[in-house]
Amino acid sequence: MTPTTFETEQTYGLRKSLSRAIPYILLTISILPIIIGYAWIFIATFSVRTEGLIPKDAHGNIGGLTLQNWSFLHNPEVWNATLNSFGIAVGMVVGVGFLSSLTGYALARMNFAGRKGFLGTTLLLHAFRPEMLLIAIFQVLLFIGGIPLIGDWVGFNTVGGVALVMITLDLPLGVWLMKGFFDNLSWDMERAALIDGASRFRVWWEIILPQIKPGLAALSIFTFITGWNAYLIPFTFTIGSKVANLPVLLNRFSGDTSLGSWNEVAALGLFQLVPILVFFIFTQEALLNIYGGGSKGGA
């Protein structure tokens, strides 16, 4: 081996590892603000006050650390709210997951009038924010609420009504994502089952759903986040916040009449963050499958 070749290979190797490192460097730079910001939040929850990133005590020296901001953990109300949040989020995951996969399946596998129209419409519906529709949805709930029997379950000021509204508002995204997954599923097994005389529903339930689990998991995380952080709908459509979840509690702590301090807000905020992080870690792999692939997919 001549020195020249050796050198070339070395430079080549260097360049290669450099080009390997570039993504890491860029990504690290990109997350710097987030890391610093969350570091501050974390420090703040354990301090009386902070200046920049440094916790300070009463005399301006470094120090003043405290566990006081986390004292809400002793409060049973917080745990109750956590439970409520969890209930709402899980309810939404189940509801949206079930309905979206039902509809997504039909959109991907069946031909019927209004199919494209439905897809276009649902995408557009996303442009209507719940805040805008609040009053109109209220009128609908009011009408339903007036119907005897049904109204007792899904009308205004019922948990059922709130649940249906929240699920519905999340359906457009869910349907679009699920359709994409179904588009990329193999058709063979299903076809065989259908030829053997299985009903569509049975095929969907027994053959398709197990295959779509990664997709469901991916959709779940988006839905779970929405449900976990839900505030406006559950608050407005029930009288006296029947469902006091964590966001409602958090809302208590901030604002001009609140007597709480910011550091407690941050602590409660971090507390609210943890379950989603855990959830995300478990579903991360699945999340990467959110777009099924293929050159002409249908996400």
């Binding site: 406006l232 608050f235 407005t236 006296g240 916040s241 006091a244 409602v248 809302n251 208590r252 009449t257």
Partner: peptide, 12 residues
């Protein structure tokens, strides 16, 4: 009794 924001409370 709770501590909603005034706007939400009023709307409710």
């Amino acid at each position: 009794q709770d501590d909603a924001s005034w706007g939400d409370y009023k709307t409710e």
